[in-house]
């Protein structure tokens, strides 16, 4: 059994975007804050800290989860993927390109989590219908786009991918 006293700082190693990062944290530090402030990966956004807005969503072992509702100490031993991890060295990922093409973003605050959740969706269901896309993204709030263009983006990215596969 491991016990960490209140305010005690512990060293943990997090596997983020395929790289091991060793950081010092208090147990009360949220994964979202450690990703942003200790790792400098500021693509993970924090909106509400109560699980509602979805902006902080990251992939934990490939599944979307709220990084504001998890302590960083709990993320040890799991693979964390942030938006930086699905962004190519140069250019855009197919989903990112589709969001650009369809105006799936305006201010961009919700976008990293929209992309990550969509990545996970397309891995699970490569050819989702509109209802599946809407259900998967229902936990991600967007104050700008009105959602239609986001849904269009995800459906188009899926269509492009299956076209490629068919070739």
């Amino acid at each position: 059994m491991e016990t960490t006293k209140a305010r005690e700082v512990v060293q943990i190693t997090l596997q983020v975007n395929g790289e091991a990062h060793t950081v010092e944290v208090e147990p009360r530090m949220l994964l979202a804050d450690v990703i942003r402030h200790k790792l400098g990966l500021t693509g993970t956004h924090v909106g509400c800290e109560q699980g509602v807005c979805g902006a902080c969503t990251v992939l934990v072992d490939g599944e979307p989860q709220r990084s504001c509702l998890m302590f960083a100490v709990q993320a040890q031993g799991h693979d964390i993927t942030t938006i930086e991890g699905v962004t190519p060295e140069s250019g855009l990922s197919p989903l990112q390109a589709a969001f650009q093409k369809h105006h799936g973003l305006q201010c961009g605050f919700c976008t990293p989590a929209m992309i990550l959740t969509s990545e996970a969706l397309l891995r699970k269901h490569p050819n989702p219908d509109e209802a599946q896309v809407r259900e998967a993204l229902s936990g991600n709030l967007c104050r700008c786009t009105g959602y239609q263009f986001i849904v269009d983006s995800v459906l188009d990215a899926a269509a492009q991918a299956s076209k490629k596969e068919g070739q």
Partner: peptide
């Protein structure tokens, strides 16, 4: 806001918990 400080216990099994 952020959580107040707490002691964090990570047991190895149910008995430990």
């Amino acid at each position: 806001m952020k959580p107040a400080a707490f002691e964090y216990v990570r047991p190895d099994n149910l008995q430990g918990a």
